[in-house]
Write a protein that binds this DNA or RNA. Structure first.
Lengths: 333, 333
DNA sequence: CCCCTTTAGTAGAACGTTTTACTTCCGGCC
DNA sequence: GGCCGGAAGTAAAACGTTCTACTAAAGGGG
């Protein structure tokens, strides 16, 4: 409970608090001899700078916020890894918020971030409500959208083309000869789910099928467990020839449930996931999926955010859109 | 960039700043009429409390730190989910630090947490150096160890018995008739890896085998990719009858590499992982594993930490040790 | 009717930094 | 020798909140 402050260090080194602050923040401005004396005092007393005092006076912190939809999803974990790497390279700390798909929880998390006066926020929004993000901006907090297109031009965003992804996925299923298709998706409040569905419909239209025939099974969460339940419903309602899942966790759940029910994959049903998480390749029947540059998504978004924070005058807002890549495996052989 | 402060709110509501602070922190102490007036002013002006100022004055924040070894590992993700749930129930924010197995990185993360004056820290330490954690305690930051036994009596810790787990796992492999056993492990600086190895040796001793015959393959990271490499080495060096992996990610990598090389599992080699992550049940040949109460680990650790923070006088330090549970699946059939 | 207690609210110091404006010293230049 | 300018350091104000000590008014009891 020592709580040694900059004043104690100053007294111990025989200088003023201002000089200690200079040693901490612009060592070049301090004569080498003095600097050494101060540094010795810092080590001797075990001084740790009080970040809050510093934030208060300086008006900003070296902290950013990361708000994701589901930290249990390897997709977001990899994004987070990219974020963390860049942030820590540049000396920023990351506060993680998990919205678990709930708008309320996301709202609470954003409030916490605002109270912490984070420098900026990386967010994969749970819903479509730009107003909440604009409120952050009004407080001087930069926002970069991750895995989501920009709401407005003066904003950075890093996204992957989900319509194209959905189209490519379903085109692949159609190419395997399937004609009746089910789409197992998370909440349709989530943009990704909606756009992948639109892509799926476009692919059906392209081969002359009626997009209205796409059988949509919506789940509350995008987990393997939810996928299992959805598969049970599909089986009960009569199996389609192909199943397209909005992410790999759902797909792995569907796969597990189908196999357990004696349905053969890919002979009876062809199956596609989305995200190409590590485990997709390792599953019972290896899972076809759409690969996204996940880690890069996190890295680039963070680089954009920190550039916006550290070089506001030269910073140019960017909208980056990656293209997903088809990874065919055994479930669509 | 409005930056409306408590003073602005006070002026707008015709009260003193102190009263606004009371509305924020002990609404009961303020007359209902005044409270409403203040609340209206807060909403009207879009006031957001400056957490740093509050932390500075109050001497502590409503923030805890969580430092894990690898956020990419579903084991830690689930722990983190438990932590997050409890923390957000009690109005605490969580700063996440990923040490990625590096002591340096962990050190940096702890420094960030110390500077933020977090109320407490949950940590799965990367190495065995209690001194660093003691330094945090000297700064008035409570520390609870997660998935690690206590360093000292006046400290909370929540752990799982890794020696027992290693013993049970290898006993199971031995019961399947295997006599030559390989242990694929992460860095032996990590306690869990060492203890599971000790358990493995104990199991060998128990059936009259020489523990020195345990073939140990050490990898730098505990990922599927590392597991694949380790498996390649095993194949090159002559296959054992059984492989025990220090976690499921390694095991899934080993499994993938073995199958690709034409080795049959479990006919040629029986295989066990550790952690029982969700994907263990979904793999090509479903993976036998040791289940740990992961989510509970996070929940309970956080409850202990916050109890220590919020009720320092009545708090009783606890050392909790869970027992892991064998989950046999196809890789040991 | 006075004193005591409770309730509602205020004024102002304090938290630990950063930063601005200022002082002091020294060397060099005309 | 006087003046200027830079280097090195200092003193003190400020950041936005919380908290302590205080005042004022309103009941309540004798």
């Amino acid at each position: 409970m020592a709580m040694v402050s900059i004043k104690d260090v100053a007294a111990h080194a025989g200088v003023s608090p201002g000089t200690v602050s200079n040693v901490l923040n612009r060592p070049g401005k301090v004569a080498p001899a003095t600097r050494e004396r101060v540094e010795a005092a810092i080590n001797e007393l075990g001084f740790v700078r009080h970040g809050s005092a510093s934030t208060l006076r300086a008006g900003h912190s070296r902290t950013i916020g990361l708000s994701v939809i589901d930290i249990g999803n390897p997709f977001f974990t990899e994004v987070a890894a990219g974020v963390e790497d860049v942030a820590s390279e540049l000396g920023y700390a990351v506060i993680l918020g998990n919205s678990a798909g709930s708008l309320d929880k996301e709202e609470r998390n954003l409030r916490v971030l605002a109270e912490h006066r984070v420098r900026g926020v990386l967010i994969t929004p749970s819903g479509e409500d730009p107003a909440r993000l604009d409120r952050l901006r009004e407080h001087g907090i930069s926002v970069v959208l991750v895995d989501h297109p920009a709401h407005r031009p003066d904003q950075c965003a890093v996204a992957v083309d989900d319509v194209a992804g959905g189209r490519a996925a379903v085109a692949h299923l159609l190419a395997k000869g399937a004609r009746s298709i089910a789409y197992v998706t998370g909440p349709l409040t989530i943009r990704q789910c909606v756009e992948r569905r639109e892509g799926a419909k476009a692919a059906m239209r392209a081969v002359g099928l009626d997009p209205a025939d796409l059988r949509v099974a919506e789940t509350a969460t995008m987990t393997a467990r939810a996928g299992e339940k959805a598969a049970a419903d599909l089986i009960a309602g009569g199996l389609p020839e192909a199943v397209f899942c909005a992410n790999d966790l759902l797909a792995l759940g569907v796969l597990r449930a189908l196999l357990r029910a004696g349905v053969r994959v890919p002979e009876d049903v062809v199956l596609m996931g989305y995200d190409d998480i590590d485990f997709a390749a390792a599953s019972t029947v290896s899972l076809s999926s759409m690969r996204q540059p996940t880690y890069q998504l996190g890295r680039i978004a963070t680089e954009l955010l920190l550039d916006e924070c550290d070089n506001p005058e030269t910073h140019a807002h960017q909208h980056i859109m990656f293209q997903p890549e088809l990874v065919p495996r055994e479930t669509t052989q």
